[in-house]
Design a protein around this nucleic acid. Structure first.
Lengths: 195, 195
DNA sequence: GTCTATAGAGCGATAGAC
DNA sequence: GTCTATCGCTCTATAGAC
């Protein structure tokens, strides 16, 4: 690894994620990626054998990050403190464009339908959801409200991360506000009165 | 209006929204739309002069529905009851594929960037957000948490509508659960303790 | 590791017959 | 109101020189 000067592959992956996020997967051509790297489209094929493989590399990073998070979570005692800490760590995954990848997977599900790695990603996200909500909830046999609350908690962190990426200042405060809302969603401070 | 048998234009609009939702705007070709209508691609151009115009028609319906909702809301006294009723009516907009359009606009913002009608839609949605949160909140000068809560409340209804469209039974219960969560988000039953 | 050049396919859109 | 046929363009991907 020492002395590697160009490192085009990693740069391409980072550029691709940014462009995928901004223009969508279908709306991003290999020409656009190549131009930002100051190489030609054909040169990209030396590093990746297809456009789908670039997507796969982006998904692999995201998948590994979520897997690491759930691996940690599964070794902790189940409880509110662990759930809060899972949210906290997920929110802090912002660095390295990880949450950009998370938002991308949510907004481009049509493009991910035929992507083999997408299933693996969804599996890990599902595991995270179950850790946040308790087992069985997402299978449809549990309280539908609990499932929704977990998905909304994650969405809160995504929305905040999205805005934090755009606004250079005020980012941490936004993330913190989203974290508070997310905590309330997975562990409501007071039960709702029966309607 | 009497005696109009074919009504291809309206059918195309309905089919387009369904395909846009399923495959994304870029992922939906005019050939796909035409095939579902059992006509050819060229025949579509008799009814719409471009693909963008089909999208515009879909957006126009959604825009009008939200505008009607906000017009009503602005004539009501501001307060928790009006906010709840706004959420209720938004949730009931599911019929006619309106919420499908709402979800589509969220997931395909890259495709809407050069669509003139998109700005109008966003304006109406912004108005709805302000009615749900109080004025000034979304301009960035208010509590960031309040803005997030409103957006999450709407997202709750979208997520529920999305699943309700797929699962033929259990839909109403899901919508009702989402409505309850959305109400809690815009008017928290108990203030969070200071951290 | 990057280039030029090109193949092959699908797309949006148009022309013109019926 | 729908058709066949085609144009021009962009895309992904490959071949082969340097």
């Amino acid at each position: 690894m020492a002395g590697r000067r160009t490192d085009t592959r990693k740069r391409a992956q980072r550029v691709a994620l940014q462009l995928f996020s901004e223009h969508g997967y279908d709306g991003t051509s290999l020409r656009m990626i190549a131009e930002q790297l100051n190489i030609t489209k054909a040169a990209l094929y030396y590093h990746y054998k297809s456009k789908e493989e670039i997507l796969a590399a982006v998904l692999a990073d995201f998948s590994a990050a979520v897997a690491e998070l759930t691996d940690w979570g599964e070794q902790q005692p189940a409880g509110p403190e662990t759930r809060r800490e899972l949210l906290r760590r997920y929110a802090e995954l912002t660095a390295g464009g990880i949450t950009a990848a998370a938002r991308f997977t949510q907004d481009n599900q049509p493009a991910l339908r035929n992507q083999p790695l997408a299933a693996e990603v969804q599996q890990h996200v599902m595991t995270l959801f179950e850790l946040l909500a308790g087992p069985g909830v997402l299978s449809g046999d549990g309280d539908p409200a609990a499932s929704l609350r977990v998905r909304l908690a994650i969405t809160a962190l995504h929305l905040a991360g999205d805005e934090a990426d755009r606004a250079e200042n005020g980012g941490p405060e936004l993330i913190e506000a989203a974290f508070g809302i997310a905590c309330d969603l997975i562990d409501p401070p007071s039960p709702r009165p029966a309607s």
